[in-house]
Each structure stands twice: as C-alpha cells, then as structure tokens.
Design a binder for these strands. Structure first.
Lengths: 336, 336
DNA sequence: TGCTAAAATGAAAGTGCTTTCATTATTCTT
DNA sequence: AAGAATAATGAAAGCACTTTCATTTTAGCA
C-alpha cells in the first residue's frame, strides 16, 4: 500500500480525484455548484483519505474541551504539585484540559502574560506564587480573561492567600510555650528573581515579632538565608547546627527545607526534637511521612478552590471578586 | 478618522505601531526576540485596537499546534512528577505547551485515546505507566499521532522502559551479600484498575528468584500486598514489622512505600538499618533527604528522553522506532 | 446547424498569520 | 578605532483554504 500519510489536505483530495482544489472546496461548501458525478467522486476520495478541513477540526476541538492554564514557577516542588493536584481534581469532571506553563525567568512570565490572554485560547488562568504587575493584570482584565491568583494579592482579580505573618507568629508562640529561648530561622528570604514573591519574609517577620514581644529577640546570626535548593538548605542548616551556641529550636520556612535540616542533624548526630526542635511550613505530604511538625496551609485546597472559582466565573460571568484567606493550623508531630 | 468596523488584523496593528507585521507576530509569539520598547508599544496598540489573532489562520501558518500532551495516572505521585519535570525541561526551550490529562478510570483513558488523535490539536503524546490496548495503538498510528510510552512496551510505538525484574534481582543480591537470610517485600502487586500496569510484580519476581537461587526462598507471609496509599503501606509495614519472626531486611517496591515503612518502624521503636534494613525503588528526590537506600531508575531522564524522542519525531518524521531501556543503579545510602 | 445561455471547472488572487532569510543597527573585542 | 558578533527588524515566501473571474463544456432552441 501507500506510505503513511500525514493528515491529508485539500490538495491531496484534488489530486486523487483529478480535479482542482477549487472544485473540492466547492463540493464541500456549495455542493449545488458542482456536477453531481464529480461531487460523488470527490466525496469518495474524501472518505477514503479521511480528510477533515483543519479549521473545522480545530473548531470542534475548541468546543468540546475547555482549557484552563496554570502558570507556576518550579512546578515540581512538592508544594506546587499539591496545589496542582487540587486544581486537577476540581477540573477532572468538568471536561477541562489542564495546560501548564512553567516559569523560570521574568521574561518568560511576561511573555506568557502578554500573549496568553490573546493567543492562548484559554478559558481561564490560575497564577501561582508569582508577582504579577499591574499592567499585566490590566491586560488580563481588559481581555476578559478570568484569572485567579494564589499567594499574591491584587484588587482586580480573584485571590487565594494565607496570613504568612500569622504563620510565623504561631511557630514562635509554640516554641516559646515549649520553653525555648534560643531559636533559629532558615528560609529563602531573598528570592533571586524579580518575579518571585516574598511570603517567607513575612513568615520571618511574624516569627521575629513574637520573640521580640517575649523578650528573646532573634539576632542576626540566627537567621539563615538559604536558597530553595537542597544544597543551599543544607549549607544553612549546617551553619546553624554547628554554632557555638546552637539554637534549641529551628523554624524552617518551608517543609522541604526542614527536611534538609533533619538530614544535616542526622549526619551531625543531633537528635530531633531532643537536641533541636524543628517546625516547618506547608504540610506537604512528606511531612507526615517523616513526622515533621509544621504549619499546615491547605495546599490541595488552595488549588481546588482556585479552580472552582474559575469554573464558577466561567459559568456565570458575574464578576463578584473573591479574596479568600485560607486558615493556618499548626500540626503537632514528632519534631517539636 | 474613519469608522473602521472590521475586526482588526495584524496588519492594522503593524500600521498603527509603525512596524512590520513580522514584528507584531514576534512580539506575541517570541517576546524575547523583540526590543522591549517596541514590544510595549505594540502591546499597547493591540490593547486599544482589541486585536485577537484568528486561531484558524494561526494554526494554518504554523503547521503545528505547539502542544504536546501527557497522559498519566495520579500525576501527583512523586515519581510521576519527576518524570513530568523531565518532560517539561525538554519542552521548555522548544516552545511547546504541556497539556496534562490525568487518568483515573479506564473510561477516561479510552476517551482520551479515542478523541485526541481525531481532534488532532496535539502534536504528540506521552503516555506514562499505562497499559494501552492494541486497538488504541492502532488508532494513534493510523492518525499519525506521534506517541511515546513510558513503562510499557508496544511494538508500534516508541517506548522507554526499565528492567524491573533486574531491579528486584539487584536488591536481593545486595541483601544476600550483607548476610540477610530473612527478608520481606512490600508492594502494590495488584493494581485495582485494569488500565494500570504491573511493574511491581516483576520487581518481586526478580527479588524472589535470587533468593531462591541462594537457597533462602521468600515465603508467602513475607510478601505483603499494599495499595499505593499511605494507609495501605503503613498497614502492610506494620504487619511485616510485628511478625513473630521479623524479617531483617525489607524491599519496598517504591520509595514512597519505603517511607511508610520508615515511619512505622520509627513508631515501633525499630532502628533502620540495625533492626531492619530497607531498600526502596525509584530514587525520588525525597529518598536523598531521608537517606534511603534505593534502586535508581532515572525518572527525570525518562521524561526528558520521552519528550526528546517526540520532538525528534516531529522534526523529521522518519519513523525509526526506538525502544530504550534505561539502566538501574543501586544507590547505597543509610538504610541498608 | 448555428448561436446563446447556463453549467462546470480551474487559475490565480486573496485571507491573516508564521517563518526564513537578508539587512541594518548596536554592542563587544582587541 | 576597526572588525566581529549579536540584536532588532522587515520583505517576502509559505500555509490550507475560499472566492473571484475567466474559460471551457454542455444544453437549449430557432
């Protein structure tokens, strides 16, 4: 037989039927303007070739599945994955496709935000943990692209946030209640990228402020800036755990960094929580596996909610702007 | 001023912004290839004119949709996420969108496989860890939809696999070398769903066969069926760890289940590896954090490779079918 | 049989967009 | 300061179809 065909075009049909593309086009669009015999022959070829006009296929495709997009940095970090899981679960039964746009530079983010609302043929957009500028928001709004932000506030869009400062506060309180007087902090206070956001700074701020109120202020040496990478966190953890006057409790601004602390502590032969207490932030799945005490921010929930907000918005485009603040809970497990 | 009523085209934008249509097109599609100032001006015009590119013309001009799809079960399980990460990294610089189709029932899978090739708004498909039937493969092939399977073999499609049996074998050998004589196994031998695949069974088989050869056969009670859920794994781990004659070494068929074992052991006051040695399978990120000895199957790599295979296939549609077997390595850490 | 109107058809000119390739402007080396 | 590399841009050639308009074929009728 003939070699494998790419999807046939009108040209293929024309050649096969021995007519011009004009006639094929007409046979399809204005059947009465072409000789019945010719038309029959053309239709036959069309059937055997399985020709489908591209535009139609597209239109059909567009109608069947809606598409919602998620813009996220490092989408494989556990916390983002859990948010995504929430999004996916909400979308699953609604016949929506899930398109992911991983961001790793400002330019990329800007590029997405500029072109997505226009060419992206998306029905809605979820933007996770990214600082988005007013002009970009404006574009979204003007192009009537429903969007919801997670972890970032904006007056013109739906938002889902938590009180990061309060989270830090809770941890500080807890440590104090347990009698700790010398504490440390590890977190990515200074995200290198302009597009990233700074919830960590707020967590630290809350943490600091309770300690201050309690009269045991957190001094500089006990605050370790650690990039959100395994090596970075380990380095910071090592510095903190080998200090002359080692802190008796550590607040890691994310669970994944807390895990690094655990690893380093193990290597140094330090016991948790006996030698150092440890509290993380996020409550990713893994936290339960390793019995990490942590501040739960409902990650799955945030994603699910974002998706539902979007779906609602799509169903009845009544722009009742929602700003949702999810609660935080300190989950007490074995490390503090 | 003229009362222009027609929907604006790229030409209008270009004229208004004082650039060529080329530059407008680029501003939308490859933002980084045009001067930021120019881009800003163009975007402004686009906004005021309310320009929306016609999807049809667009699809026509670039004879690709720029979208590749990934079908995967539980895409939020760490191992899948890592594969996805690989896919995303390979796609990132090639300007392809990543569309995710999470599967949680046979019907859904069938539905996707039935409609995707027809609707044809994907350029390629990656199918992870799913058993796909011959008739579906046929449909993909006939509709010239490039596809690559991960963790499942099929003669007509690109495949990326590992030797699961060998993996089990390696673990058995290792335990034997360390002097263990009584071992246990935990894994999801019987996935409840028809569409799921059975690599775990092969891992068990390899494990069993070495032990047999060594004269210390693995008896039934030491093989625990555990669903791929936290509770399921914990239950199985508990049973295994509280047996009268507790095994001195356990092979968990996935890292995530190994983590459950670690947790249960901790609760029971058992030391790893002194009281029980433990080896997992996959080498997910987390394995390093908790110092889990495990069999590394290059997860990221598998995704990256799959994406690259696909991209190759798209660039030059010479159907040289590739069946790639990735190597396994036993990564020795602290648990065995 | 000759002449005209109607029917059937194809060449080629759009359509709105992307992409290749060549050109010009800018920045970097040495 | 000259030359090389790089960035920014536009002209023009597609892409898969539709439409216009000119041409050929056929049918109708005196």
């Amino acid at each position: 037989m003939s070699p494998v065909q790419k999807t046939p075009t009108i040209y293929d049909v024309a050649r096969e039927a021995g007519v011009s593309i004009t006639t094929v086009s007409r046979a399809l669009n204005k059947p009465d303007r072409v000789n019945p015999q010719t038309r029959a022959r053309i239709m036959e070829v069309i059937d055997t070739l399985g020709f489908v006009p591209k535009a139609e296929a597209r239109a059909r495709a567009m109608r069947r599945n809606g598409r919602i997009g998620v813009i996220t940095p490092f989408f494989t970090a556990p916390s983002f994955v859990q948010r995504l899981r929430g999004v996916a679960s909400a979308l699953a039964h609604e016949h929506y496709e899930l398109v992911i746009y991983p961001v790793d530079s400002v330019e990329q983010l800007q590029g997405y935000l500029a072109s997505i609302p226009i060419v992206g043929n998306l029905d809605g957009l979820i933007i996770m943990s990214l600082a988005i500028e007013d002009q970009d928001v404006r574009r979204l709004v003007e192009n009537a692209m429903p969007a919801v932000l997670i972890e970032y506030l904006n007056q013109e869009l739906h938002c889902i946030v938590i009180r990061d400062e309060q989270g830090g506060y809770m941890v500080g309180e807890y440590f104090l209640r347990k009698g700790h007087r010398c504490m440390g902090f590890i977190g990515d206070i200074e995200p290198p990228e302009r597009y990233a956001i700074h919830p960590v700074r707020l967590r630290l701020q809350g943490f600091k402020s309770v300690l201050e109120q309690a009269g045991v202020p957190l001094s500089k040496e006990y605050i370790k800036q650690a990039p959100y990478t395994p090596e970075g966190s380990r380095q910071a953890a090592y510095e903190l755990l080998t200090m002359d006057k080692r802190p008796t409790a550590i607040f890691a601004a994310s669970d994944i960094q807390a895990l690094s602390v655990m690893k380093v502590a193990r290597q140094l032969g330090l016991k948790i929580p006996e030698d150092v207490a440890l509290i993380g932030f996020d409550d990713i799945d893994m936290a339960d596996y390793v019995d990490l005490t942590t501040v739960r921010q409902h990650l799955d929930e945030s994603g699910r909610l974002a998706a539902e907000l979007l779906l609602d918005h799509l169903k009845n485009p009544k722009p009742i702007l929602q700003h949702i603040t999810l609660p935080l809970t300190l989950i007490e497990r074995a490390t503090a």
